[in-house]
Design a binder for these strands. Structure first.
Lengths: 224, 224
DNA sequence: CCAAAAGTGTTAGTGATACACCCATGT
DNA sequence: ACATGGGTGTATCACTAACACTTTTGG
């Protein structure tokens, strides 16, 4: 161990859906350990900043992405997860529209880029596990919260919403059943406009009744 | 701030159902800050021990409870959550049979005791929030995992199992519907024995097919 | 009029809820 | 024979799943 104290870090798993695939924002490490390898953005928490602030600061420093909603997940603290010493990392998750940001690698990152989730392998540290855990969480979140509002434009079509669900869940859904269920949830409002685009029938636009992150129902009864 | 480094702690929310009510294991603090007040068991993580080990060690030191299954939850790291300095705490949760342990306060605890969850107030630090979050988590866990096996004896009656669910969820359940659903889940096996006790028809005993902690289904579809 | 995506309904099956009586035992 | 908790079935309702054609537009 190089240090005599435990250090606290934050790692951020930022997802997007772009070009029809679920992607995650990775950096290529500029410094050892794992120099040149892909890793999740993240870094040490300063003594006078909150965990969330640290996560957002590190994310901006390493990728240029800023001002997004992040959700705190769990902590990773195996004794030898980092060869430099004892580092406990708090994981965060986000779902954003990649078009809204220009990636810009600074600080510890040689490069920041979007990578298709299914082709990610060999991340530094225990970041593969963090990514897998975050993906499970994202799949749960998209079914139980309005986190989808974080990635969609203010007005969107039901087809766009369905494609988002399909890409996150990794499975095709039936169009009629999807529409019935999403309307039954009563979280959407019609924008009373249509999207004219392409040589086909224009799609009606919808918006989320609330765009701020919240659970869909007060209480979810998975069983009983 | 008294210290110049961030410190890492673990706090453990141990639940039981006893005397018909959901209870949580609390200690009364021996030292400042919050001396004499109730708090969750917990303490600092040593540099060479895992988060889980630290949680279990602190739990044993402060309450005498040892060798139990704990589940890692999230981290709490507000800058001023502890007046002594910057402390990030990792929360853990458990559900145990209180009859199996004799409480024994040592170390930082003046006293360890079970307290009915509904009468807990004024815990030290942000432990009230940690407790509330852990309770939500417990209610989710009991519906989606076999964590109930951690508190029940090897063989138990369906009425005992139902009472556990009712106490954790805080609501009455219909006996016939509960039995139909729990049997449909296929996680129980008949012990082919009866429990003779009291002046009434003896109850059939059941056991969990697997007593080690696991999710009930590979995949839970809350929506879609 | 053709191509392309949008939009819509019905049926069958499955699971949830509500509800009341008989059973096996000890005293 | 009575008191006590154990154990069971059915009818209704709500939700899920499977499935194919018509509509509206631009070119």
């Amino acid at each position: 161990m190089e240090w005599k104290n435990i250090h606290v870090a934050a790692d951020i798993v930022v997802f997007t859906v772009s070009k029809g695939v679920l992607q995650v924002l990775l950096i290529r490490r500029k410094n050892p350990p794992f120099k040149g390898q892909f890793a999740l953005p993240g870094g040490f928490v300063e003594i006078d900043e909150s965990l969330e602030k640290a996560a957002l600061r590190e994310l901006e420093e390493e990728t240029g992405v800023r001002g997004i909603f992040i959700k705190k997940l769990t902590a990773y603290g195996d004794v030898s997860r980092d060869p430099r010493g004892r580092i406990v990392s708090i994981a965060f998750m986000a779902l954003i529209d990649s078009e809204k940001f220009r990636l810009e690698a600074k600080a510890d990152a040689m490069e920041a880029q979007w990578v298709g989730v299914s082709s990610v392998r060999n991340l530094a540290f225990d970041h593969m596990k963090i990514l897998n855990d975050a993906l499970s969480e994202l799949r749960f979140e998209i079914q139980t919260t309005n986190i989808a509002a974080q990635i969609l434009p203010e007005k969107f079509t039901l087809t766009e919403l369905q494609e988002l669900y399909e890409r996150v869940m990794g499975e095709k859904l039936d169009k009629r059943n999807f529409r019935k269920r999403i309307k039954a949830l009563d979280i959407l409002a019609s924008a009373r406009e249509t999207k004219m685009e392409g040589a086909h029938r224009p799609a009606l636009l919808y918006r989320f009744r609330s765009r701020s992150y919240r659970a869909l129902k007060d209480r979810i009864h998975v069983f009983v």
